[in-house]
């Protein structure tokens, strides 16, 4: 497996993600933690492909990175913010403004239209309700090549491939510096998967967004320069 040795010392420019001595448990009583990460770092603008089997702590790691979970110990620094020093509300706000998230499925509220789904994401990031349809949204939807006849349709009338493309548009609408993608292609067929990954790469390159891409599908690794094994990041999984 093409695993890279992680740099111990921080590079000259600040890293996008820096984890140090992170241990995590869902319950206080559990004897062995789910996560035990001595050190893991992702540089700004880097695209990382994280490979891991289910149960290797992937979801927990992603939960920590986007601030839905809080560490018991260590440093969880994302985009220069030590997340476990922030209050729950601050972490929610941080996530809304700085992190784009694309999951395997259910990325959009099924009964809202494409445009309303994007407006909803804007409303959580800005806290202002001036969510009118504007040029930004239009440009985004054109960028992900969604025909404009679909813009005001409820998303559950779109194909899965189209929905995942809208998910990309939704994830970058608040101009985040980090995109977390959790198995985003596993519900797509071959042609849709290639189109999706190209679009994701193009978009994150264009906006200089750091990308953490989690998947078990090794055929996708050709798109990435850096590939990390979950087992190498999380010592619990390796035991």
């Amino acid at each position: 497996m093409n695993t890279r040795i992680l740099p111990v010392t921080a590079p000259a420019h600040s890293p996008a993600i820096r984890l140090k001595d992170v241990a995590f448990n869902y319950t206080e009583q559990a004897s062995t933690p789910i996560l035990n990460i001595p050190s893991w770092q992702v540089d700004e603008g880097e695209h990382v492909f994280v490979v891991g089997k289910s149960g290797s702590g992937k979801s927990t790691l992603l939960g920590l990175l986007c601030g839905l979970l809080k560490t018991d110990s260590g440093i969880t620094e994302v985009l220069g913010q030590n997340l476990h020093k922030l209050s729950g509300r601050k972490r929610d706000q941080f996530r809304a403004c700085n992190i784009g998230y694309v999951a395997q499925s259910f990325n959009l509220i099924p009964y809202l239209s494409v445009v309303d789904n994007i407006k909803l994401a804007i409303s959580f990031a800005t806290k202002t309700s001036s969510s009118t349809f504007n040029n930004d949204i239009e440009a985004l939807l054109r960028a992900v090549k969604l025909p404009n006849s679909h813009w005001f349709k409820p998303v559950n009338r779109l194909s899965i491939g189209q929905q995942q493309r809208v998910a990309i548009a939704r994830s970058i609408v608040n101009k985040p510096k980090l995109i977390i993608a959790d198995e985003p292609t596993s519900s797509l067929d071959q042609s849709n998967r290639d189109a999706f990954i190209e679009m994701l790469m193009e978009t994150s390159d264009q906006h200089k967004i750091t990308l953490v891409f989690v998947s078990h599908d090794l055929s996708l690794r050709q798109h990435f320069t850096r590939i990390d094994e979950m087992a190498a990041i999380n010592l619990v999984g390796g035991l």
Binding site: Y101, A103, F124
Partner: peptide, 16 residues
């Protein structure tokens, strides 16, 4: 539950 999870991921507070 998936809807709630999604809302949280895109930044909704538990209060929302």
């Amino acid at each position: 539950s998936k809807e709630i999870q999604l809302l949280r991921i895109i930044g909704a507070t538990a209060t929302s």
